[in-house]
Design a protein around this nucleic acid. Structure first.
Lengths: 262, 262
DNA sequence: AAGTGGTCTAGACCACGCT
DNA sequence: GCGTGGTCTAGACCACTTA
């Protein structure tokens, strides 16, 4: 017999206009916010909440589904509903593509992750030639065919990011860029060796809820949005030499940018 | 009598492991993706879906709630469930705080919105002195008291952004910055007049699901995350002179950054 | 008044995790 | 085996919109 949740949760207000399931969600949310349930803690079971509030099970489930939608809790089948721990966050600095970070044997992702004490992995690597979407083609100045490099990044076994790089085919074909492993410093180092000295990057940042395929690829919990980042690399001649389309688990990232005040 | 949804939606696969309500959600999502229901279109009513699939109403509602969580549709009580239109997006360029944009009589938000053909509004303006949170205090180099300026921005009547600016009190007290309307060019222009020439900004970008208060303030639809942006302004002496904490409706914004390749 | 979605009940059976 | 959450049914009454 576990102790009843009455000590942690209040009673319903029958005079309130607020729907019962919303009131229950409010109680649970408040208890979490106030630390009465800490990260990783198990909420009272559905049966206990049914008993405590004197409502039907669907009403309790409705309440819990609100909290799931907010990303506050997650359910584990056969076990219980738990307060979602905040995962470690990866900080992406705006100088992460600086030339000085490119001189090493490992990829930027690997170096950075190991420095942070995480175990980095890259999988689902795929390199192929494709006809680009209209959007990608436009960003690349009208390229008709492109080389695509797709890969998924993981930290400590958890997928955090899925990225696709697009390069004009005339630029990348039969170069190390078309190899699964392009060598030290990554494709930016190779681009510069091929005479495309990089001048600047443009990044577009959006946030939205994931599509079902993204939920699967990134193993996203309910209530976790994605950050969608589209980066275009320009060489000193002003030519767009790469577009990188990245979808990141939003709970795993902070993007940091430095802006000059001009 | 309207036409049955059978023309637009398939039949359930009884051999599939996939839950019935997920299959129904898949059908509807696919129909939306393929343009069989366009933006603003009304989905079949719950009753029609119950009839079409031969399931109970709760099963149909469960399916629809998945699509609501993905931000694909929204329900209007007494009317129906509609495909959510993509709202016009506001693009925030990384040079939006450049000095040259600061010489005008209107705020950056106003100028930009009017250029884009939208009707800008600012409301819920509040200026007060406060003791800062630990996080804000640390970002401001340990300020003990701050001047806070809060305001909400709207486009064509729709709230899109809620921002709080924090400035060290010793710097802002008894200056135009403490006035509700700080004058042409905004507080950055006033800071420079006060001798704090701005050198750079740092921005941190996160995305997450909104808290209930944010849903209310920004009138967010279900399935719309927020972009949380924290900007710190530094003067030429390296002092942090302002922190601006902004929560934006993610479906209304694209952030654009320029990064030098160094 | 008719049709729509919003809330809620009181059951049922199943799948999963643990002991 | 038992407790957990996952799915589903067949109702009920309510609130909102439109006509």
């Amino acid at each position: 017999m576990t102790s009843s949740p009455s000590a942690l949760l209040g009673a319903l207000d029958p005079t309130s206009d607020r729907a019962v399931f919303r009131q229950i969600a409010d109680h649970l949310r408040e208890a979490i916010d106030k630390g009465r349930f800490t990260e990783g803690a198990k909420l009272p079971s559905e049966a206990e909440l049914v008993e405590h509030y004197g409502v039907s099970r669907m009403t309790v489930r409705n309440a819990i589904s609100i909290l799931q939608g907010e990303g506050l809790v997650h359910a584990e089948h056969g076990k219980g509903v738990y307060v979602r721990p905040r995962p470690p966050v990866r900080r992406l600095a705006s100088d992460r593509f600086a030339r000085r970070h490119r001189e090493q044997g490992k990829s930027a992702f690997t170096v950075e992750a190991e420095a942070a004490g995480s175990r980095p992995e890259v999988d689902q690597l795929e390199v192929r030639e494709e006809r680009p979407s209209q959007d990608i083609a436009a960003r690349l100045g009208g390229a008709r065919k492109v080389l695509v490099r797709r890969r998924r990044y993981l930290l400590d076994g958890r997928p955090v990011e899925f990225a696709s790089s697009y390069l004009p085919l005339d630029l990348a074909r039969n170069t190390p860029i078309a190899q699964p492993n392009p060598g030290p410093g990554g494709i930016y180092a190779r681009l510069e060796e091929l005479g495309h000295r990089l001048e600047r990057f443009e990044e577009e940042v959006r946030a939205r809820m994931p599509a079902p395929a993204e939920v699967k690829t990134l193993r996203l919990a309910a209530g976790v949005p994605v950050i969608h980042l589209i980066r275009t690399a320009y060489d000193t001649e002003g030519r767009a030499v790469e577009v990188c389309d990245t979808v990141m688990a939003a709970d795993a990232y902070v993007l940091a940018y430095q802006l000059p005040a001009i």
